[in-house]
Design a binder for these strands. Structure first.
Length: 549
DNA sequence: AGTTTCGGCGCC
DNA sequence: AAAGGGCGCCGAAACT
C-alpha cells in the first residue's frame, strides 16, 4: 500500500512509504497536505477507518483513465501497472475484472488488492502523467480535472463511511401506507394483490400486471393494440384496466426496488450505506453501487431523517445544465440570462417564447438532449434565433460525435468516439454498422445525413459536453464544500448530480448554507474562469429530506 | 443451473 | 402530446 507525500509544487517530497500502515504514515507527516497514491478507493477507506483524513490527494489510476481518454486511447488498460508497462515498454497487463458490490459490505476494505507497484515505479508513472498533462489542449484545465476528480474520490469515500441518516421505522410506516400488510411467504402485499385483482376483473380473465407480455396480450384480446406497457402509452388508452394497472406498476416498483427487503439489505444502525463511486461514468457523473441510491423515489425520502438535534441541509443547483451551457458556449444572450439568479427558464421564455416557461424549458432540454421530434424540435428554431452560439455549441458537438471525432468537456474529460450511444453494444448485438454518411463538403450540417448509430453517437456527444462539463463543475463544488466543512461536525452525506445533502448540528446549518453558496461561486470561477454566469442553489434546512422543496 | 439480455421505471 | 441524454435496479425471458 504505497503512498508518497507531495509538496506544494506537486513534486514528491520524500521520505516515502513503502508498506506498513498507511495511517501511521500519514499521521507521521502532519505538515503534508497532499498525497499521491495508486487508488483512492483502496487506500482511503482504510485511512478513514483508522480515523485519518487527508486534505488532498492525487489518484494515479484515475488520472490514467482521464489522460488515456484525452489521448484518444480509451480501450487500453488503465491500471498503474499497465501505465508503467507502457512507460517502460513491457507487456501491458489487462485490467482485473470488476466485482459487483454486496449489500452492506464495505467492499474495498479487506479485499485482495490489485497489483501493487513499488513506490519508485509509481512515482515514475506520476512524473510521466505530469508530462502528459502538459501535452493536452489546456494543461491547466486538465490538471484541475485530475485534481478535482481525486478530490471527488475523497468525498465519495467519506460519504460512504458516513452513510445517509435513515429511519427504518418511518420507512416501514410509508411502506405500510402505500402497500398495505405483507402476507406470509413473501408474496405481494395486500394493496398490490387488490390492484392485480382489479386489473384481472377489468379484463375478464387472470392477468399478471407485472408481466408486460401478458398485459399486451390481454389488451389485444380486448381489441386494443399496444406496442408496449409504458405508462404514457397506457394512459392514452380508454379501458377500465388502465387505472389499476398504472397504480400497480407504480407501487410494484417501490415494493421490489425500495421495499422491506431493500430495508433489510441496505439499512443498518440508522444509516443507508450505498457505495458512491466518483468518476464511474463516461460523462463524469457519479454512480452508486448497490441500493439504488441515486433513484430513491420521492415518497421514500420521508425516511431520510436527521439525527436528534441535527439537520439536513438539502441544496439543489438551479437550472444547472443551461447555466453550464451558457458558461461553455459563451453565448452572449444566454450568459446574460444565466448571469441572474432568477429562474433561467422564465428569462429564456420572456425573450424567445412569449413568457411560456414550459415551452422554453422543453426547448432548452431538447437542444441539450438532441430531441428529434415533438414540441421541443419546433421550438428549437426560436431558441436558435435568440441564442445562436449556445445551440451551435451543442450542434458542433453532435456533428463531431457523428463523425467519430473526440469531444471534450470544459476541463478536458473526453468522450470516446463510440461510447455509450451503442456503437459497441450495437455491434455486439449484430446490428450492421453502416458508415456515417458524409455531408457534401462545405454544406452546413443538418440532421439526417448520418446513420442511425451515428445519430445516436451525435446525441450522446451533444449531451456529453453539457452533462460532463456540469460534472466538472460539481466536482469542484464538492471539493470546496468539503473543505468548508472540514472544521465542523457537518458531514456530506449525499450527492446526486446537482444536489447535495449535508448532515450537521442545528447550530451549524446556517453556516453550511452560506458555505454552499460560496462553494458554488468558487467552483464556477475555478472551472470556467471569468464568466458572468451565476450558479445559484436552492437550499432547505430540514429534519426530513421529503420536506425539502 | 447459471448467466446475459430485455422491458420498464426510478432519479437527475 | 409524447420524445431526446445519463445511470442502476428488478424480475422475467432468453440464452448457454
Amino acid at each position: 500500500m504505497e503512498l508518497a507525500p507531495l509538496g506544494p509544487d506537486g513534486l514528491p517530497c520524500g521520505p516515502v512509504l513503502r508498506e506498513g500502515d498507511p495511517a501511521e504514515a500519514v499521521r507521521g507527516r502532519p505538515e503534508v497536505t497532499r498525497w499521491v497514491w495508486r487508488s483512492t478507493t483502496e487506500v482511503y477507506p482504510r485511512l478513514l477507518a483508522s480515523g485519518v483524513r487527508v486534505e488532498r490527494c492525487y489518484d494515479i489510476e484515475d488520472a490514467e483513465i482521464l489522460l488515456l481518454g484525452h489521448e484518444g486511447r480509451y480501450g487500453e488498460p488503465r491500471s498503474a501497472a499497465a501505465a508503467l508497462a507502457r512507460l517502460r515498454g513491457g507487456p501491458v497487463p489487462p485490467d482485473p475484472p470488476q466485482r459487483a458490490a454486496e449489500p452492506g459490505s464495505q467492499s474495498s476494505l479487506f479485499e485482495p488488492q490489485a497489483v501493487q507497484l513499488p513506490l519508485t515505479d509509481l512515482l515514475a508513472v506520476y512524473a510521466d502523467q505530469q508530462r502528459r498533462h502538459d501535452a493536452t489542449a489546456h494543461p491547466d484545465r486538465m490538471r484541475l480535472l485530475t485534481a478535482a476528480e481525486s478530490a471527488g474520490m475523497l468525498v465519495a469515500a467519506e460519504m460512504n463511511r458516513a452513510g445517509l441518516p435513515w429511519s427504518a421505522d418511518v420507512h416501514r410506516r410509508v411502506l405500510h401506507e402505500l402497500l398495505g400488510e405483507r402476507y406470509a411467504g413473501g408474496g405481494e402485499p395486500r394493496r398490490l394483490a387488490e390492484l392485480a385483482d382489479e386489473v384481472s376483473a377489468a379484463f375478464g380473465r387472470r392477468v399478471r400486471p407485472d408481466l408486460p407480455a401478458d398485459v399486451v396480450k390481454a389488451f389485444a384480446q380486448a381489441g386494443i393494440k399496444v406496442k408496449s406497457t409504458r405508462r404514457w402509452e397506457l394512459e392514452s388508452l380508454d379501458h377500465p384496466a388502465v387505472k389499476p394497472l398504472v397504480e400497480y406498476k407504480k407501487l410494484y416498483r417501490i415494493w421490489v426496488a425500495h421495499g422491506w427487503s431493500w430495508l433489510q439489505d441496505w439499512v443498518r444502525d440508522g444509516r443507508f450505506r450505498p457505495e458512491f463511486l466518483a468518476g464511474g461514468t463516461v460523462t463524469g457523473r457519479w454512480v452508486t453501487n448497490g441500493g439504488g441510491a441515486l433513484q430513491i423515489p420521492k415518497v421514500i425520502r420521508r425516511a431520510v431523517v436527521a439525527d436528534p438535534g441535527w439537520r439536513l441541509v438539502v441544496a439543489d443547483a438551479d437550472q444547472m445544465e443551461p447555466r453550464v451551457l451558457a458558461a461553455i458556449s459563451r453565448d452572449p444572450g444566454l450568459m446574460e440570462v444565466a448571469g441572474r439568479e432568477s429562474d433561467l427558464y422564465q428569462s429564456v421564455s420572456d425573450r424567445a417564447f412569449s413568457g411560456d416557461r414550459d415551452q422554453a424549458k422543453i426547448a432548452v432540454l431538447g437542444a441539450v438532449y438532441g430531441q428529434t421530434s415533438g414540441d421541443g424540435l419546433k421550438n428549437l428554431a426560436a431558441l436558435r434565433r435568440r441564442f445562436p452560439r449556445a445551440v451551435a455549441y451543442v450542434d458542433d458537438a453532435a456533428r463531431a460525435g457523428e463523425e467519430g471525432r473526440l469531444v471534450r468537456t470544459w476541463l478536458g474529460r473526453t468522450c470516446p468516439p463510440a461510447a455509450g450511444a451503442g456503437e459497441d453494444s450495437a455491434e455486439e448485438a449484430g446490428i450492421p454498422q453502416d458508415e456515417p454518411a458524409e455531408a457534401p463538403a462545405g454544406t452546413e450540417w443538418v440532421p439526417g445525413y448520418a446513420s442511425t448509430n451515428a445519430r445516436a453517437r451525435g446525441r450522446f456527444a451533444r449531451n456529453f459536453v453539457v452533462q460532463g462539463s456540469a460534472a466538472d463543475w460539481t466536482l469542484l463544488l464538492l471539493a470546496a464544500l468539503r473543505q468548508a466543512c472540514a472544521g465542523m461536525a457537518a458531514e456530506l452525506v449525499f450527492f446526486q448530480h446537482d444536489e447535495v445533502i449535508v448532515h450537521c448540528p442545528e447550530e451549524e446549518a446556517e453556516v453550511v448554507v452560506a458555505a454552499i453558496r460560496e462553494a458554488a461561486e468558487l467552483a464556477g470561477r475555478l472551472t470556467f474562469g471569468e464568466t458572468p454566469v451565476r450558479f445559484p442553489f436552492s437550499t432547505a434546512v430540514v429534519e426530513c429530506y421529503a420536506d425539502a422543496k
